[in-house]
């Protein structure tokens, strides 16, 4: 291991905690000196995560509806999403490179495929748990299938769907780091650069930011759910 501190920006006096000779884990000077680079990585991380989860959600909803309509297809869809989930992320990205080359889409599509496992299952479970008498009442009131789905079934299934969305989002934040394989890993790129240059401050900062990002997303989704489903608030 060399002591090269992974940067070119140290002045003659050197920053207090990272330089050719100092390599501290905790280093506020690193964060302020490299704030643009850190913000860029963070932004890329957020965008990849959001795109992947959004794509996963858009794919999962029709899959869940088809699976619910045709029971023969249900086990096939659930099995397919489980099989995708079994493939390690590094391998999935490597396989997707054949189709999407070295682009952010490699990571976004790969991560979206992973979210299908939990999203499809929870959508199915949420829709299945809607009480039959509630559906009958809606049909009796003259609700067609479309309006029944949008106005009755999806709102009642929302807590379970949102629980799935939270799990999917938190996992996606963590897995985005592996996207560094194709150089689109958001904070993961800071991690791999950090290990190449043995730069401890960069590694710890990126790690902490990544966990913090997962916590923030989780809290935001929890808040959204509380706003969207006011009727669940009284219960515990």
């Amino acid at each position: 291991m060399t002591l090269a501190a992974g940067g070119s920006t140290f002045s003659a006096s050197g920053p207090p905690c990272y330089s050719a000779l100092v390599n501290d884990w905790i280093c506020p000077a690193y964060v302020s000196d490299r704030r643009t680079e850190i913000a860029d990585a963070l932004l890329e991380h957020v965008l990849i995560t959001l795109a992947a989860v959004a794509l996963g959600f858009v794919l999962a909803l029709p899959l869940a509806l088809v699976a619910r309509r045709y029971t023969a297809v249900e086990s096939a869809i659930v099995a397919a999403t489980t099989i995708i989930y079994t493939v390690p992320s590094l391998a999935l990205f490597a396989l997707l490179v054949n189709i999407t080359a070295l682009s952010p889409w490699t990571v976004i599509i790969g991560l979206a495929l992973y979210t299908l496992t939990i999203l499809v299952r929870n959508m199915l479970a949420g829709l299945r748990d809607v009480p039959a008498d509630v559906k009958e009442s809606a049909v009796g009131l003259g609700y067609g299938p479309g309006r029944l789905l949008l106005r009755v079934e999806l709102p009642l299934a929302l807590p379970v769907i949102m629980a799935g969305l939270r799990v999917a989002t938190v996992s996606t934040v963590a897995l985005t780091t592996v996207g560094t394989l194709v150089a689109y890993g958001g904070l993961g790129d800071l991690l791999s650069n950090g290990i190449r240059t043995d730069f401890k401050a960069q590694i710890l900062t990126a790690s902490v930011l990544c966990v913090a990002l997962a916590v923030v997303f989780d809290a935001l989704l929890m808040g959204t759910q509380r706003v969207l489903t006011p009727w669940t608030r009284g219960r515990k």
Binding site: V167, V170, S171, V173, A174, L175, T177, V178, T180, G185, G188, L191, I203, A206, S207, C210, V211, A214, V215, D218
Partner: peptide, 8 residues
């Protein structure tokens, strides 16, 4: 465990 990146 889900929130912590394996790579990190």
């Amino acid at each position: 465990g889900r929130a912590i990146p394996v790579f990190a």
